[in-house]
Design a protein around this nucleic acid. Sequence first.
DNA 1: AATGAATGAGACTTCATTCAT
DNA 2: GATGAATGAAGTCTCATTCAT
Lengths: 162, 162, 162, 162
Amino acid sequence: MARAAGVATGTVYLYFRSKDELLVSIFQRMMREAMADARTVLAEIDDPAEKLRRLARGHLERVGRDREFAIVCQVEFRHSTKFMEQFSSAELRDYLGVIRDTIAEGQARGVFRTAISPTLGAKVLFGALDEMATNWILSRRRYALTADADAVVDLFLNGVTA
Amino acid sequence: MARAAGVATGTVYLYFRSKDELLVSIFQRMMREAMADARTVLAEIDDPAEKLRRLARGHLERVGRDREFAIVCQVEFRHSTKFMEQFSSAELRDYLGVIRDTIAEGQARGVFRTAISPTLGAKVLFGALDEMATNWILSRRRYALTADADAVVDLFLNGVTA
Amino acid sequence: MARAAGVATGTVYLYFRSKDELLVSIFQRMMREAMADARTVLAEIDDPAEKLRRLARGHLERVGRDREFAIVCQVEFRHSTKFMEQFSSAELRDYLGVIRDTIAEGQARGVFRTAISPTLGAKVLFGALDEMATNWILSRRRYALTADADAVVDLFLNGVTA
Amino acid sequence: MARAAGVATGTVYLYFRSKDELLVSIFQRMMREAMADARTVLAEIDDPAEKLRRLARGHLERVGRDREFAIVCQVEFRHSTKFMEQFSSAELRDYLGVIRDTIAEGQARGVFRTAISPTLGAKVLFGALDEMATNWILSRRRYALTADADAVVDLFLNGVTA
DNA sequence: AATGAATGAGACTTCATTCAT
DNA sequence: GATGAATGAAGTCTCATTCAT
């Protein structure tokens, strides 16, 4: 981190109390950006399906922008249960909330099936996108991660059944 | 690990050459079990949709059986990119392969849409189930993880669209 | 050691209090044998020069008899200053004493130069033989160690000067 | 080592990758110094016998300079056969080579007996000096190690025979 | 404020020794 | 007595954090 920022190791500790605080800070900045993007989507788009598509694209665009950063998110953040518990409760909940609300909105408008729990739906979509991100990091091939967004959302919207 | 097994630290090294070998060993045992379960499902069931449902149930049942074990899988295994790269190539590929082949089989029979890439479909389903598992581990509530399987597969099969 | 003796590790501790005691015991047995050989030589031979030759041959024969054993002597015994201090004071002193006395005897008979300190002479001869042993252990070639004895003693007796 | 240098354990690892590398580094520095001293002797002195005397003095002076250092050389370096095999082949071979060549030179000039193998002669002289060093380390008395050099070389040159 | 060498707690591992069988 | 699996102290090494400059 210090090297990437072009400063000495000690300098980092002038701005962050500890490595954990640095990671939390990175995570929160990422989530703030994610939430800002999401709010823009919610404001600009009306159709719930299209909202999901745009949220998914935004998600993968964000992750795919910087591979190093993505590795931090997919690997470093998951080091300890303790750390995951801490952030999963607040910021991530809000992010999943946006997806959940969008699904609920679609149900209210009658375009989404009410048989689906919005909370569960949000987790499924998030889990699917997260898996795309993980695969992209671990893959030796350097394909455009964003390209997966539409396919994932198509599957999420319409299912695999013919 | 040693503490959990009620033995001294050194004892672990009588059975595993190193910590990595222990983790790999746990992972491989888990994957062997997963593949054995999966093969049973493939042999017993004919309908591709039902196969997916049974694979999903099996997956969450396995993870939900032992919380400690699940934590090792969801947290410890993701410590390092290097470690993940190592086994994501072999064992996990086979497991995803089972899902992929089932989707392809459904397409061949005309019950699944051919617009869906079986590989991507497999990742989506796996990612969704993995997210259920992670949420279950991090949740303070002690609900039955398996209960999510049907809802996830319903969503995967039919989508969210009304 | 236990493996070589065809017994279980624990069995060794029925006969020796500790690893150090075992090593000391081996060392003492070796020195007892060495002293016995040396006394035989002293009794059988009259000529001091011939005594030295026979002592040297005996030394290298003993070391060269069993390579594993020689490694223990040349490597294991020198692990710690503490250990070396312990045994160098007693048994080894007796062994060097035999060489020293033989040199002194030669001086008394007028066949060896009195300018040479018998104590130093004993160390020199021992050091030379010890170096032969060490070289033999480290060498990949499996030559007969004993063959060096005569050359070493010739050098010790007559020097390198023409 | 760290304690002797007055630093924390971890600090050593800023300068040496591992304990082995540290030992190798110490050994190589010692051999570099030894070879430099030896080359000076070879250049300054013409008489082979005098060369040997000066090489021996240099050897014992170097060892006798720092007791702690000498203990590392005589004890630590001989911990494992593997470690000894590694460097006995390269650096030590060069050092013995200098002695061997000096003996061969003496033979070529007719001042040393050709019956003596220069290689064996080198080992004998080295072994004798090494034994002096070991004795000095183990001795409780704090005599000047260098004083032995002349006596050892006199013995090496002229032998013990009257 | 910035630096980066130094720190030392803690992780992984070995191996001399013990002890239940 | 014999066994060998189990033990845990001690060794090597890492890396998050500190601190003198």
